[in-house]
Design a protein around this nucleic acid. Structure first.
Length: 129
DNA sequence: CAGATGACTCCCA
DNA sequence: CTGGGAGCCATCT
């Protein structure tokens, strides 16, 4: 049996749990927070391997692709997100500029060995001038 | 170790 | 917009 002692998946699940309701994060965002050689693809792989019992505590549905769309099959993920107040546009995509998670608090990240997300000027720029 | 696979992402035509 | 291809990493054959 493939006993997974990999902290990697555990860390990924931990990072996913940081995403609050009503917000979303991309696979790449989670990978960046986890760091340590983690990759967007690895995040997707980990979530695909998420134990059934864990889906209750790990908000896997809040992880979407960099295009703002869902990568899972079916409509379950979309339905769950809409229940949280996430709005999909006509192209079935989520506005990352509005719903994208800003990352963990610097202190928390520091204490748990995670990384913070770098601000995305191009998407969240408010232009107060 | 090599090859295949996958809930990724970026680039180019 | 759609497709194809490269780069990426972890896991399984």
């Amino acid at each position: 049996m493939t006993e997974r002692t990999d902290d990697l998946y555990g860390r990924i699940y931990e990072a996913v749990q940081l995403v609050p309701q009503g917000k979303v994060a991309t696979y790449g965002d989670i990978a960046a927070v986890v760091g340590n050689g983690c990759d967007a693809r690895t995040v997707g792989y980990a979530l695909n391997d998420l134990p059934k019992g864990q889906d209750a505590v790990v908000p896997w549905q809040r992880i979407i692709n960099s295009s703002g769309g869902i990568s899972t099959r079916g409509t379950r993920q979309r339905r769950l997100l809409e229940q949280e107040g996430i709005v999909f546009d006509a192209r079935e995509r989520i506005d990352l500029g509005t719903y994208r998670w800003e990352g963990p608090a610097a202190e928390w990240a520091e204490a748990h060995g995670f990384h913070t997300l770098r601000p995305r000027r191009e998407e969240t720029q408010l232009r107060l001038f």
